[in-house]
Simulated assay, not measured.
Amino acid sequence: MTVATPASDLFIGLMSGTSLDGVDGVLVDFRHGTRVLQHASCGFTPGLRAELLALNTPGGQDELHRAALAANALVAHYAQVVQQLLQRSGVATDQVAAIGAHGQTVRHRPQLFDGTGYTLQLNAPALLAERSGITVVADLRSRDVAAGGQGAPLVPAFHQGVFGQAGRTTLVLNIGGIANLSVLGADGAVQGFDCGPGNALMDGWCLHHTGQPYDDGGRWAASGRVLQPLLQRLLAEPFFAQQPPKSTGRDLFHTDWLTAHLAAIPEAAAAAAADVQATLTELTAASCADAVRRWGRGGSALLVCGGGALNAHLMQRIASLLPGVQVGSTAARGLPPLEVEAAAFAWLARQCLRGLPGNLPAVTGARGPRVLGAIYPA
């Protein structure tokens, strides 16, 4: 497919991930590398967050109708972030080539038992194009899945362009609702995969027991003690032992998964809520550290992005489990942790408009490079 190269190299990327906390958006100038001109965010209302979480779980009445309404509400948040980006930057609508709008993942089952699979993101890209007056690129995962891939993670190719260094292996760990690791090899080879739960289980437990959407700085977890029998049971989940390529989501790591494990260990079921939070934090730290040890190819620097990079206790635990590895935020390399994924989807929109592949088959397992995304013209 031949696609005309856009006249502008300004793109907007929008990301609402498995943390379900809201939308992050960036306006990116790709004329000379990757330069974020503006960042904006918009938190989800409690009602929308609850509905998106409910739609992650099979069953429920009138799901199709509710999903369509939730997609429209999500796009209202997207449009608000786009407006903030344009107003704060002084950039006109017609100067932006496209918006990369990932949508909200509510099912991710790329490989079912019969060899087929699917990934489903709630979105209303036609509505976003109407409301913003800007071309929208959406549905960024399904072509990779159709080609036999996991459809995730899609950000390692972007990580390589921004953080990769010739002659040195660099590791990039994104901790959103789910954690994923990019291994940027010294030889230019790239590997990437999901490690397991990032913030999803921690945030859910925190909201249920404290009313707060997340454990600010990890202070609540730091006040508890790790329940080793529970931790070892959680780490026995077969997903952790699988070899890449692999991806996961709330389809596996959800409240019922945790509840079942708690019920199997009397000590854990009767433990203080802070102790369970400490254990869930250790689960994320331990599974991420294990992925680095097994697949990090001798990398000595780990750059962390996503909301987890702001959890000081989690960062300290990861660093303590990886002696000899320098653990720090991507901010040290010029891109703040809450801007990385949104910038990646701006980059994917750019790839789509230029008719260039957005996936890495070595990462996703797809049969080959594919142009990702569907285009909704302004």
Rank of each mutant, 00 (worst) to 15 (best):
A312I: 11
G296F: 04
A286S: 14
V340D: 07
S300G: 15
L252S: 01
F345S: 04
G334C: 09
A273N: 06
S300E: 15
V304F: 05
A309V: 11
A285N: 05
L314V: 05
A269H: 13
A264N: 10
W295K: 02
C288Y: 03
V304Q: 12
A269K: 15
A264D: 14
N311T: 12
A346K: 03
W257C: 05
L283C: 03
L303K: 06
W257K: 11
W257N: 11
L283V: 05
G334I: 10
V276I: 13
A270N: 13
Q277F: 01
L335S: 03
P336Q: 06
E341H: 12
E339K: 00
P266N: 10
A319W: 11
E282C: 02
A260F: 00
L322D: 07
C305Y: 01
D275L: 09
G299L: 06
A285T: 01
G334Y: 13
A342C: 05
A260E: 13
I318V: 14
A346M: 03
A268L: 04
R297W: 11
A309P: 10
A312Y: 02
A278R: 01
G334R: 15
D256E: 13
E282D: 13
L314S: 06
P323A: 15
G296Q: 07
W257A: 08
A343V: 05
A312L: 11
L280K: 01
F345R: 02
S320K: 13
A270I: 04
L280E: 01
H254Y: 01
R250S: 02
T284W: 01
A289H: 09
C305F: 00
R317K: 14
A309E: 15
G307N: 07
V340T: 09
G308N: 04
A278S: 09
P336C: 04
A301N: 11
V327S: 08
A312K: 12
T330H: 11
T255E: 06
A312R: 14
I265V: 12
E267R: 14
A263F: 07
S329Q: 08
A344L: 04
T259A: 11
T255F: 00
A312W: 02
A285H: 02
S320Y: 00
F345P: 00
L303G: 03
E267K: 12
L322V: 09
W257Y: 13
R293N: 08
G299S: 10
F253E: 00
A273I: 00
L338S: 12
G299C: 08
H313A: 14
T279F: 01
G296K: 04
A309H: 10
S300D: 14
M315P: 11
G324A: 09
